[in-house]
């Protein structure tokens, strides 16, 4: 207990926790739109595809520089998204298969590059391994600031474009008819998703960051039928997962942060699945019993 209080009163920890709360909230918020757009898996592919970008940035520069890593991550993440859409457009391959192919190719290249760096460039010092599962403890103040500012901007933009995202996801054809530039709106949405993935990989890792986009809105859907409330609850669930996962990971030295965050999110999802206000399985069971008795 004492160690927990000591831990929480440390200013460095407070920074890390603030970062994890903002990141969790941002991904839960934007994740709601991704889920409703049925593009959750594209987020996953994008996340895996950031690994080669991080590695290439290190190979070219030879230094550990967060801004460079994140630029590389964003570039290969975008490239993967482009490939997925191009494959679907120009072949008979469906989206799921296209995502599967692109995800594994990019992640494969990432792992090969990572192994090369570890063997030949003294990669142990580079801290690149941490990008796979995330390591909150290894982050410096600047990394956290990047996460906090990036997440804050993502939350801000999502709130600003809430109405436009809503109509573009619900009824894109009707929105186009109204003269709303649906293509542009979708690009903004995609850019925000890339943003969450890129700022989040250091903390949560490329393998599991997508879970922070997918699971919180899934859980939130069990509590409400309103989009505004759903995305807010989703943000809260993301923030809670972020802060608990990060705390446990930092106290239990060397425990990877990403898997812990995902375990918390999944536990919250399970709770929602069972006890959700309107749709929870157990809630529904009792409602149907109540109806039968009266």
């Amino acid at each position: 207990m004492n160690s927990l209080i000591e831990f929480l009163s440390n200013p460095n920890t407070q920074w890390v926790l603030t970062g994890s709360i903002l990141l969790g909230f941002a991904s839960g918020l934007i994740g709601s739109f991704v889920l409703l757009k049925k593009q959750s898996l594209i987020g996953d592919a994008m996340a895996h595809a950031t690994l080669p970008g991080v590695c290439i940035a290190y190979i070219i520069s030879g230094v550990k520089s967060t801004p460079l890593f994140l630029t590389g991550a964003a570039l290969t993440g975008l490239l993967a998204t482009y490939f997925i859409q191009a494959i679907v457009k120009h072949s008979r391959i469906k989206t799921d298969a296209s995502i599967g192919v692109v995800l594994s190719v990019f992640f494969g290249i990432g792992i090969v590059l990572l192994t090369y760096i570890t063997k030949n460039m003294g990669g142990n010092q580079s801290g690149l391994d941490d990008f796979i599962f995330g390591q909150a403890a290894s982050m410096v103040r600047g990394d956290i600031q990047t996460i906090a500012v990036g997440s804050f901007l993502i939350i801000l933009f999502t709130s600003l474009f809430f109405k436009e995202f809503k109509i573009a996801v619900f009824d894109p054809n009707y929105a186009k008819g109204l003269g709303i530039p649906v293509g542009l709106i979708n690009s903004i949405l995609m850019a925000l998703v890339i943003g969450v993935v890129v700022v989040g990989i250091q903390m949560v890792g490329v393998v599991l960051i997508a879970a922070l986009l997918i699971t919180p809105p899934l859980a939130a859907r069990y509590w409400t039928d309103r989009l505004g409330l759903m995305s807010f609850i989703s943000g809260i669930i993301g923030a809670l997962s972020g802060v608990v996962g990060t705390t446990v990971s930092t106290i239990g030295e060397g425990l990877p942060t990403g898997p812990l965050i995902v375990l918390v999110t999944s536990a919250l999802f399970l709770l929602s699945l069972l006890f959700g206000k309107s749709k929870g399985l157990i809630t529904r069971f009792f409602i149907s019993k109540g109806v039968r008795h009266t």
Binding site: L36, I167, V169, F170, D171, L178, R221, R226, M230
Partner: peptide, 21 residues
Amino acid sequence: SEVDWDFPTNALDVVLMGRYG
């Protein structure tokens, strides 16, 4: 059939979309 009716929104919200333009 062009929209997903499971979308988390209510009737009034959908009608309001007519005003977005």
